[in-house]
Design a protein around this nucleic acid. Structure first.
Length: 557
RNA sequence: GGCCCCGUAGCUCAGCAGGAUAGAGCAAUAGCCUUCUAAGCUAUCGGUCGCACGUUCGAAUCGUGCCGGGGUCGCCA
C-alpha cells in the first residue's frame, strides 16, 4: 500500500497497458509494477525493473522485453519526456519538466494535512508502551521506549490508522508490596526511628521523600497503627505519588496516553480468574508440583509456564494474559506492545497465550527496544554524577532539552543499540541533527519575514513552473516524497525514518539556500514562486517535526 | 548451551519485500560571509559490506555453518 502521486499512478497505468499487451494470457503470474526513484539523476526521475521480472515468464532477455515495453508505451499519456533502457534491463523515465510543480499548490492548500493519508483505512491499532512499574523514576531505556511508542503512534495516525495509546500500570504483585515496605522504612527513619531497608527494597530518593512527606503530614500516626493497615495505606499513597510523578515526566516529554489501565482492576472485576478458567476449560493447563501450568509449549514456547505458584499466588504472566484477553476483546485490529530488550524472552509465551485465547499470533506485534548507552567526552556513563543512580529521563531533559532527547531516541532503528552522545545533543551546531532541522525551519521563517517587509505575501499568485533549477527540483522532490515516507514509516513500524526524512529535507533546503536567493528584486515572478516554495517546505518541516514531537521554531536564539 | 539483536568508511549509523558505480553525518584536508541567519554550503580523502559455502542472470540484502559484541534464559515483575 502506498500513496502515489498522480504522475506516478499515471505512469504505472501506462506501463501496465504496454506490459499487458506483451504478455497476453500470462496475466495470473504478472508481478506488480513498481516504480523506484533512482539515486543517480542520470537514471531518470523514475525507474522500473519490470522487464527483468518478466524475463523468467516470457523466457526472453530482459533488455529485449524492455525494448518492447518502451515501443508500446504511450509516452504522451504518461507525461514522459524521454525513456532509456539501461544496465541489465532497467527502464528509466525522464518526466516532462513541470511534473513536480503541482506539489507546491498541493502543500499550500493542504497545510497541516499535507503528509496525512488514508492508507491505514481507519484500522484500530492499540499501542501499549512505557508501562514502567510505579516504583521509581523513568530511566533511559524507558525514555527510548516512550519516544519510540509516541512517534510510532503519530506516524500511524498520519497514515490513517485509528490509534489508541495505553499504559499498563503494574499496580499489583510483589513489587508493590515491596514499595509499601520500603516507604514504611523511610517513614520510620524520617521519624528518627531505627529501621532497616529490606534487601530488595527500593532505595531511590523518591521513596525517601515519600517517607518525609508522610512524616510531615501524619506525624507518628501510622507508626502506632496496625501494621497491615499502615502498609495498605502506604501502598496506596506510594502508588499515587509514583504514578503522578511518571505522568508529570511523560507530560514534560510530550507523551500522553488515552488510557491508563490498572492491573489491579483485572483482579477486582474477576478478569484474572476468568482468564484462568478459560485456559483450564480449554484444557490448556495442568497441575504439577503443586502449581498450575499453562501448556504454552504446544503454541511454540520453549517450555510450559507456571500460572499459579504452589503458594497459591499468580505469576506475572497470569494477569498479563487476562490483560491481553481484555485488549483483544476490545476489538482492535492490531495490538503493538513496546518492550525493552530484557523482555524479549517473554514474547513467545505471550504469543502462545494469544493463540490459546483463539486469536492468530500476529494479532500481537512486539517491538523490542534495544539498550541505550550514554556517552560523554567519549566515555560511557554508567551512573548519574548528581544522584549516583541510573540517569533519569527528567535529568536528561533538563540537560539537553526535550527536543534533543526525543530526536536522539527515535533517530536509530529500535533494534539496534543506541549510543546517546551527550556532548552532541548539547551542541548548537550542524553536528547536532535536531538543530540542523530546526534551523532550516527558522531560516525559512526569517526569509519570509524579510519578504513580508518588502511587500510580498505568501498568498500571492505564483508560477510554479519557474522553479526549474537543480536545487529547486531537488527540494520539490523531497517535499513530494513526504506522504510516502510517512506511509513507509508506518508500514514498517519504523519511526526513525521520520528523523531521516526530516534531515534530508533540511539538507535540500540548506543547499538551496546557499545556491539561490529567494528575494530577487530583478525578478518578481521568480521571487513569488520561490516564496511559495519556501512556504511549502516550511509547512512540510513543521509537519514532520510535529510527528517527531519537536518544536519548529520561528527563529533560533 | 537455547533464543533475540547487532557486525557496512577511523567513529556513529542508513541501505537488507535481491537490482545499476554501497550512501549520510562526524572526524581529516581544501575552499565559500561588503549578499535573505556561516547553528549554513561546496569539494576531496576514506569501504575485502565479520568469514566461508550455497540459491540466483544478479547477493550488503535470501539460506546454512562458523567468528566477534551485547542481551536474555525465575513458581521475579
Amino acid at each position: 500500500m502506498s500513496v502515489l502521486s498522480e504522475v506516478e499512478n499515471n505512469l504505472i497505468v501506462e506501463i501496465k497497458k504496454s506490459v499487458d499487451y506483451l504478455v497476453g494470457d500470462n496475466q495470473a503470474s504478472l508481478p506488480e509494477i513498481l516504480l523506484e526513484k533512482p539515486k543517480e539523476k542520470a537514471h531518470g526521475d523514475f525507474a522500473t525493473n519490470i522487464a527483468m521480472q518478466l524475463a523468467r515468464i516470457l523466457k526472453k532477455a530482459p533488455r529485449h522485453i524492455a525494448e518492447d515495453i518502451v515501443e508500446n508505451l504511450n509516452k504522451e499519456g504518461a507525461n514522459v519526456e524521454k525513456v532509456e533502457i539501461a544496465g541489465p534491463g532497467f527502464i528509466n523515465f525522464f518526466m516532462k519538466e513541470d511534473f513536480l510543480s503541482n506539489i507546491v499548490h498541493t502543500v499550500l492548500s493542504e497545510g497541516e494535512q499535507f503528509g496525512r493519508s488514508k492508507v491505514g483505512n481507519g484500522k484500530k491499532v492499540q499501542v501499549e508502551f512505557v508501562s514502567v512499574n510505579p516504583t521509581g523514576d523513568l530511566h533511559l531505556g524507558h525514555a527510548r521506549g516512550a519516544a519510540f511508542g509516541d512517534v510510532l503512534c503519530n506516524v500511524l495516525e498520519a497514515a490513517g490508522y485509528d490509534v489508541e495509546r495505553e499504559y499498563y500500570i503494574n499496580d499489583a504483585g510483589n513489587q508493590i508490596d515491596q514499595l509499601a515496605v520500603s516507604i514504611e522504612t523511610r517513614y520510620l527513619q524520617a521519624l528518627g526511628k531505627e529501621a532497616d531497608m529490606p534487601k530488595d527494597g527500593y532505595r531511590g530518593q523518591d521513596i525517601v521523600e515519600i517517607g518525609k512527606k508522610l512524616a510531615n503530614e501524619y506525624g507518628d500516626k501510622w507508626e502506632n497503627e496496625d501494621r497491615s493497615k499502615r502498609l495498605a495505606f502506604f501502598r496506596e499513597y506510594g502508588l499515587d505519588y509514583e504514578i503522578n510523578k511518571i505522568k508529570t515526566d511523560l507530560d514534560a516529554f510530550g507523551v500522553h496516553f488515552d488510557n491508563w489501565f490498572s492491573e489491579t482492576s483485572l483482579y477486582e472485576n474477576g478478569r484474572v480468574l476468568e482468564a484462568v478458567h478459560y485456559l483450564t476449560d480449554h484444557d490448556y493447563t495442568y497441575e504439577q508440583d503443586g502449581a498450575t501450568w499453562f501448556k504454552s509449549e504446544q503454541f511454540g514456547d520453549d517450555k510450559d509456564r507456571v500460572l499459579i505458584k504452589n503458594d497459591g499466588t499468580y505469576t506475572y504472566l497470569t494477569p498479563d494474559i487476562a490483560y491481553h484477553k481484555d485488549k483483544l476483546e476490545r476489538g482492535f485490529d492490531k495490538l503493538i506492545n513496546v518492550w525493552g530488550a530484557d523482555h524479549h524472552g517473554y514474547v513467545p509465551r505471550m504469543k502462545a497465550a494469544i493463540q490459546a485465547l483463539g486469536y492468530p499470533a500476529d494479532k500481537l506485534h512486539v517491538s523490542i527496544i534495544q539498550l541505550v548507552n550514554l556517552f560523554e567526552k567519549g566515555e560511557k556513563i554508567r551512573m548519574s554524577k548528581r544522584t549516583g543512580k541510573a540517569v533519569a529521563l527528567r535529568e536528561l531533559m533538563e540537560d539537553v532539552g526535550k527536543d534533543a532527547v526525543r530526536y536522539f531516541f527515535v533517530m536509530r532503528s529500535n533494534d539496534t543499540q543506541l549510543d546517546f552522545n551527550l556532548d552532541l545533543a548539547r551542541s548548537e551546531s550542524n553536528e547536532n541533527p535536531v538543530f540542523y532541522v530546526q534551523y532550516a525551519h527558522a531560516r525559512i521563517c526569517s526569509m519570509l519575514r524579510n519578504a513580508a517587509d518588502q511587500g510580498y505575501d505568501i498568498t500571492d499568485d505564483f508560477d510554479a513552473s519557474l522553479l526549474a533549477s537543480e536545487k529547486e527540483q531537488d527540494l520539490l522532490k523531497q517535499v513530494a516524497a513526504f506522504p510516502q515516507a510517512v506511509v513507509e514509516a508506518a508500514n514498517r513500524e519504523a519511526p526513525y525514518r521520520m528523523t531521516q526524512y526530516a534531515y534530508d529535507l533540511a539538507t535540500a533546503l540548506h543547499s538551496f539556500y546557499n545556491a539561490e536567493k529567494v528575494i530577487n528584486e530583478d525578478n518578481v515572478a521568480l521571487t513569488k514562486a520561490r516564496i511559495a516554495l519556501m512556504e511549502a517546505v516550511r509547512i512540510t518541516i513543521r509537519n514532520v517535526a510535529a510527528i517527531i514531537g519537536i518544536e519548529a521554531p520561528n527563529e533560533m536564539k
